[in-house]
């Protein structure tokens, strides 16, 4: 990992990294920061040193940073109009004047892909973070306390687990976002995030619960209790770092599936609605023209795939960095 080619990648974006490492690996939020700032190193410091030497990390982080900036300031990337089109340009193929071509309604696909990043990234990231936090917390409580607390929480999770995803989302969203309601863009996004979280936290909870159950009887937890460590210290310093790996992997996969789920809900007419743009909406619109104008499907899908891949690679890199044995 220390060949010269890596070094050149390391030197590219030095100052911006700490901010988006935080946004890319949200599950680290629970880890306590090491108070000591001098030469002694802890797990997080070592993980960061390790990450800095990984080209995979820098590539994925750069892409994620790019998407985040795209979501925040789409006008930096395009001056085109994502909402209004001219029907005369309907399904015009990509050319030098419009790189990605025009869609059925004659709208600039490039501008729409850029503007669509916001809804897709915000929905996917926030629902992933919320799901991981909520499901993770429930899993820790259920696994660590055990007994009737575990029984009650697990049964509640089973109830949500039993709801089919699409059906559950339809029920929630038609109740609050049915036809005739006039919710704003951010309200709808909030509702979509909420329904995604509500319907997917049981999986995370089960993952977390099983890792906690496997870890909590470990000798080093007993040793910590013998030293007089309180529940908070045991959970934060001993349980969490050792139970995080499966969650991290699942979380990165979840980002991708949530972008797709948002598209499904939009397609059903209960998620985001035109004129709001998202990759999911674009993909579902494009599928009717997949044979005559495949580029309509290609560009939003390509962005989606790159975004999902970046998150998966980042998650993988962070997971490896957090395991001392893999360094």
């Amino acid at each position: 990992m220390s060949d010269p080619s890596t070094a050149s990648i390391v030197s590219t974006p030095p100052a911006t990294m700490p901010t988006e490492a935080g946004s890319g690996a949200p599950t680290n939020a629970g880890l306590p920061e090491n108070a000591k700032k001098q030469k002694p190193r802890g797990l997080l410091g070592d993980a960061w040193r390790d990450l800095r030497r990984k080209p995979l990390f820098w590539i994925s982080a750069t892409f994620i940073l790019l998407f985040v900036v795209m979501a925040a300031f789409p006008s930096l990337f395009t001056s085109g109009d994502a909402v209004n089109g001219a029907l005369g340009r309907s399904r015009v193929e990509p050319s030098s004047s419009a790189w990605f071509g025009y869609d059925v309604q004659g709208r600039d696909v490039y501008a729409r892909v850029i503007y669509g990043a916001r809804a897709s990234i915000v929905v996917a990231l926030l629902s992933t973070i919320l799901t991981l936090l909520f499901g993770g917390a429930m899993g820790i409580i259920a696994g660590y306390r055990g007994g009737w607390v575990d029984a009650v929480l697990s049964r509640i999770a089973d109830i949500f687990f039993g709801l089919p995803f699409v059906l559950g989302a339809i029920v929630i969203l038609t109740t609050f976002n049915g036809s005739g309601t006039d919710n704003g863009e951010w309200t709808i996004m909030g509702l979509v995030i909420l329904s995604l979280t509500v319907l997917s936290w049981p999986v995370v909870m089960r993952l977390m619960r099983s890792s906690v159950l496997a870890t909590k009887e470990a000798d080093y937890i007993v040793a910590a209790r013998a030293l007089g460590a309180g529940t908070g210290r045991i959970i934060l310093k001993h349980l969490l770092p050792n139970c995080l790996a499966p969650l991290l992997v699942y979380g990165t996969i979840m980002v991708g599936s949530f972008i797709g789920a948002e598209a499904t809900l939009s397609f059903l007419g209960i998620g985001l609605k035109s004129p709001v743009v998202s990759w999911g909406i674009m993909i579902s619109e494009a599928q009717n023209y997949i044979r005559v104008s495949p580029f309509l499907l290609f560009f939003p899908s390509a962005f989606l795939v790159i975004a999902v891949l970046s998150f998966v690679m980042l998650g993988e890199a962070v997971r490896e960095a957090l395991d001392p044995k893999l360094r």
């Binding site: 802890g42 470990a218 007993v222 310093k237």
Partner: peptide, 14 residues
Amino acid sequence: VMQDPYTSLNPRMT
């Protein structure tokens, strides 16, 4: 002092 030195130390702590 515990029996198994392989499991009594948290693998993620220095």
